[in-house]
Design a protein around this nucleic acid. Structure first.
Lengths: 218, 218, 218, 218
DNA sequence: AATGAATGAGCGTTCATTCAT
DNA sequence: CATGAATGAACGCTCATTCAT
């Protein structure tokens, strides 16, 4: 787990770049600025990253991997597609809340960059996102969710809402308490896709289960 | 309705800029490129728009106004908050589908630009978005929607999902048939917020109403 | 003496230009600025003056002529080269003091412009300056001044000192009381060139004569 | 005394800029021209000087310092305020004659630039000029000069005349033999301020002393 | 491996000037 | 005659990137 010298320098550059990009904007930020802040020469940055955009694209690699690994780990422990979806939403939002600079870079400079699509970092993200689709598919198979729902749409609703909320948050500082929206969000979606034929009860009855998940995420 | 010569030139610049920004990206695009494409001198562009970014920020003004005016008009004709929400989603997506370059500029270069927030154009957009909140509030008041829903969240779900879908569409070309997602999207959300105490029936029963609205939107 | 409409417009442009050039600097000033201030269109300025620099070069024409005409008039009334030189210095400094914007333009933007040398305006100035040389030559001929002085040098001392003082004044505001330096300046120079062989007395003894000249200049 | 590589480059830029500004004029000259002439990239110029005007303002720093240091050195060796003033005039004119490009830049583009007043280079010049005032004050104290002369005026006469002569020279090429005006200039001024009460003799009797100073300045 | 120094390449922007009305 | 509108022609300046040490 210990990083060698090179990895440490690389990490320092990425962390500094994340911070500088988030605060000043990608285009406004300069390599010289990042170098100065990281106390590393500009030339050295180019030892590790081939271009300024390459540096930007390297930012999500690790953080995303960590998030999606954590996600995979938890999903195994949780029963039921609905509960799993809730965990996913929670983990996403929690991760962004804890890394606001990273969230800003992701939401403002990566998610809308066509060149990012062909990137290592984006592939990792796509893989992570597939976990959502898988959970939805699972929910349909087990009869938890309606048969006729469109998994791509549901996934887009989840991601889109999160992105919208987090983007608003990094841009304006609102809403201050992102986490408070997790339960209502997931409730609304689950209720919209819940298969009442198999289970006429309401999703909200299963809250206790969710609470446990929630507390285990500390 | 007829535009004078200056207004025509201004419009031509905005239209060309929209196209060029959409195709080449805001930073990659140059004023010289826009000028050449619009067959207008670079200097003339600066007669009308003080900076390149100012030109970018001027793009949404008119289109947005048109969209939100149309929206206000239709909302008056439609009964029921649920039906109104559906119309809103339809109008948004339809408008983006018909103006892909504008959609691209909005989704990729405006929505994530902090400086845009202080802009005339953004104020117009904010006013338009308030219409959504108003409809949701209305739905709660009339008992159509549950009492305990968070209007900000519901609005964010609607906008976030649309943004996510449209962004994907302008970036990758998928999904090709955005419109097909309108019904399922609105169904899912309405079902999530439908007040079953007052109306145990399902939203989906009201489809015929929606269909009419839909066809009237041509 | 009455000016026709065209001459009035021309004069207004020149006066405004003098003011704007003095306050903002020749290069920093724009034609648009002058046009706005003079409430005349930019294009109209080009009706009267072929280029921005041409406008600058047109500024001294009239003022200089007036100054040198006044000078010629007074010189005829005054007896003695020394007294005449004093009158000259007085008239120069007085004229600059009364037209600070003109003085600034002359000292800061005309006197050091090589292109100005070939100009109508400069020819007028040269003619005016010749009056100084003529007075010095006269003083030598009449035996008032030493035989071996260099008229070009004496003229340069007079002009150079005035230019230096006035330049300082327009740039910094000091010295506030330019007029107070007229007497000491002329005293020092005259004493330096006074022919003591013919008149062992001192120039300063002739003060009463100067005083009269001075009061006649009101 | 040996300059490192960077200092050499900086010096090369300043020298080239001095030449180009002198020959083409400050506004007409372009950075690209200077870069080409100095065989250094335009960007490199901006490594050392933040703006074109900053480059202009950096020109006098060194040359002025050298002149004023030389001046201070010689003034210590020379007896008598009058002799000292002569040395000062000589050193000024000699320095300009040997560096005509520098003289041109100083006379045409620096001395009349308000922004230059706040500059490092101007502060050095002011300090140098104070030496003149000091010598004049000294002359008054020792009784060499009259008690009632205005040191500021005398200093202005010396500087003004030099500036006028040098400006004429750099603009038109005349007078070709500036040095020949040194003696008459200083004679005239000294005679104008010489205290005949203490020393009824004439300044011109002291010529032999001056001659020695003069020859030591080669 | 690390960096100080150097630069190529380009772009937004400004105005003096012109022209059609 | 007067001008609103249009533009040609430059130029200063910035950085991402490279190179020599």
């Amino acid at each position: 787990m210990s990083l060698n010298k090179i990895e440490i320098r690389k990490k320092k550059i990425i962390n500094t770049a994340t911070k500088v990009f988030a605060q000043r904007g990608f285009n406004e930020a300069t390599i010289s600025e990042i170098a100065k802040e990281a106390k590393i020469s500009e030339a050295s940055i180019y030892e590790y990253f081939s271009t300024k955009e390459g540096l930007l694209f390297s930012i999500p690699a690790e953080s995303s991997q960590t998030l999606f690994d954590t996600m995979a780990f938890h999903l195994k422990l949780i029963q039921g597609a609905a509960n799993k979806l809730r965990a996913i939403v929670f983990l996403f939002i929690d991760s962004y809340r804890k890394n606001p600079d990273f969230a800003a870079v992701l939401m403002l400079y990566l998610k809308h960059n066509k060149k990012f699509l062909d990137t290592e970092g984006h592939i990792a993200i796509k893989a992570g996102i597939k976990q959502i689709t898988r959970v939805i598919d699972q929910g349909i198979e087990t009869g938890e969710f309606k048969e006729d729902i469109n998994p791509y749409l549901i996934r887009s609703m989840i991601l889109g809402t999160i992105e919208h909320l987090v983007t608003n948050w990094v841009m304006t500082g609102n809403p201050e308490n992102l986490e408070e929206l997790i339960d209502p969000l997931i409730d609304t979606i689950i209720q919209g896709i819940w298969n009442t034929k198999n289970d006429p009860g309401h999703w909200s009855l299963q809250r206790p289960v969710k609470r446990q998940v929630s507390s285990s995420e500390k």
